[in-house]
Design a protein around this nucleic acid. Sequence first.
DNA 1: GTCTATACAAGGATAGAC
DNA 2: GTCTATCCTTGTATAGAC
Lengths: 219, 219
Amino acid sequence: MTEAPAQERGARSRDAILDTATDLMSRHGYAATSISMISAACGLPVSSIYWHFGSKKGIYVAVLERARTTLLAALPPSEVPGADVAQRLDTFLMEVGDAFQRHPRGVKLLLGLGMMGQDASAAAVAEVRQYRDALVDWARDSVSSVFALRDRPEAADELARFTLRMVSGTAVARWFEADTVLDTGPLRVALLALAAHHGVPTRGVPGEDAPTSVVTARE
Amino acid sequence: MTEAPAQERGARSRDAILDTATDLMSRHGYAATSISMISAACGLPVSSIYWHFGSKKGIYVAVLERARTTLLAALPPSEVPGADVAQRLDTFLMEVGDAFQRHPRGVKLLLGLGMMGQDASAAAVAEVRQYRDALVDWARDSVSSVFALRDRPEAADELARFTLRMVSGTAVARWFEADTVLDTGPLRVALLALAAHHGVPTRGVPGEDAPTSVVTARE
DNA sequence: GTCTATACAAGGATAGAC
DNA sequence: GTCTATCCTTGTATAGAC
C-alpha cells in the first residue's frame, strides 16, 4: 500500500526525536540531556537529529513549542460553562486537575529547561515566555469567566496568579512524590474566600461547608 | 594576627568554594554547572576543589547540606508567639515571607539540583529528602501552633502543605520575574478560610482588625 | 593545602557517502 | 533523509611538584 512518500518518513522521524527529547529533557533537564542520549533512545543517528533541528538549542525550542501548542490545544475553553459560580468553579477545578494529571511535563519543561541560564538563546527565552504567558492568560480568562470578573481585572489577576502558583507548587511536590495530585478541594475553598474577600458576589456558594464566618471583609 | 594556622586557610577555601558552587548551581542547575566554572569564579584551581570535595556530587551534597542547615537555623521557632489566631497568623506569614526574601535559593536548590535524575547518588537523594522533610515538619508545626491544631493532625497537614505549595509556586514564578514576592495577603485569606472550613475556631479573626495586610520584608 | 600539567571520556557539531 | 566516521571542545578527575 503506497509506501511513505519519503517525505513522510522525515516528518515521522522528526516527531520521534521530539518525543524522545521531550521525555528525556523533562526528566533530566536541558543540560543533563545529551544528543547521544536522545540518539540512543530514539534509534536515529546523531546526524539526523542535527539535520532536523540544527543544534541542541534548536531541539529545545522545538520541544517547548510543541509542548505549548499541545497543552494549549488540550486546555478547555476559558469560557467556563455553568449556571452559577459554584458550577463553573467546580468545572474549572476539575479541568485544571485533569490537565495537571494529563500533562505532567508542563511545568517541568518550563523549569527544567528554563534552567539554561546565560546559554539561553533569544529564541529559547521567547518560547519560555510565550509558554508561560499563554498559561497566565488562560487562567485569567478562566477565573474571570467563573467569577464574572470582567470588570475587575485586578481581582481576576490575583485569583489567576493564586491558582497558577498552587498548580506550580504542586508540580514541584510531584518532583518528590510521583503520584501527587492537585488538591482541588482546598483550592476551591481558597478561591471562594478570595473572591468573597474582593467583594465578588458568590451567592451562597459554599454549600456544604463553612457554617461559620467566611471572610466577607473588604478593602 | 600571625597568619592562619594553615588549617584555617583550608576551611576558608572550602567555604569559598561552597559559596561559589551554591551560587552557580542555584542559578544554572547541577548539570549546567561545571567544575571549571566554579574554579574560575572562586579563583581556586580545579584540583583544590577535588581535594576538598572529592567529586562533583560531593560538592552538590555539601552545598545542599549547608543550605539546609543554614535555612533551618534561620527559620523562626515553630512555636509561633501571639495571643490569638490573628496575631500568630500574621507573625507566621511575615516570617515566611521574610524567609522567602532572604533565602531565594531554598527551593531553587531543591529543584535545580534535584534534577540529577539517575545520576543521583544515594547521598544526594538522602540530602534532598532531608531538606524537604525538614521544611514540611517546620511548616506543619508552625501552622499547628498558629491554629492550635495539636489534636487535628490532618488539618495541620493540609494547611502546611497548602502553604508550602504556595511558597514553591511563588518560587517558580520568581524564576521568570526576579522581584516576585510572596503574596501573604491572599495566602492569609486562604488559610483562614481553610481553617474555618475544617471547623477550626478562628474567633472573629477575619477582616476588621488587620488592614488587608501587605506583609513584606523590610530592609 | 595549593598549584601546574595532563589523562581520558563525553559532549556538540560536521563531512560526505549513500 | 539517513548513516558512518570524525573533529574539536569541554568536562571530570588525577599526578606530582611545591
